[in-house]
Amino acid sequence: MRSRRTEPAIDIRSQHDPEVNASLYVSSELPRRLIRWFEQHLLECDDCWQEVWLARRGRFLAEHARELAPAGLRDAVRGEVQISAAGDDDPGRGRSWLFDRRWRRGR
């Protein structure tokens, strides 16, 4: 994996950006020392308050779009990986491309 870049910390006190502020706050990524400061700021800043309101609602909706992977898919992946591992020792047992199709037909 690519090495992670180090980026300067975002200081919301010196740079008023309601989008970024709301994004950090709703993602629970504001440093603890800034949370109280920002919540006080929210009482005075309509722009930030509106963005936080929308962001909370949007995040809530996005969380509800989460889907669980079908149980059959877990089995299929497990099978594919095991077949692939076996295929490394025995070239005659390479990956079966029919595996997933067969699984689908059986659903």
Binding site: E7, V20, L24, S27, L54, A55, R57, G58, R59, A62
Partner: peptide
């Protein structure tokens, strides 16, 4: 593969758009 600030902005716009 983008700066964190870009992700924060995309995230907010996505949340906002979904709410709207």
């Amino acid at each position: 593969s983008t700066p964190r600030g870009t992700v924060l902005s995309r995230l907010h716009r996505g949340r906002r758009a979904l709410a709207l």
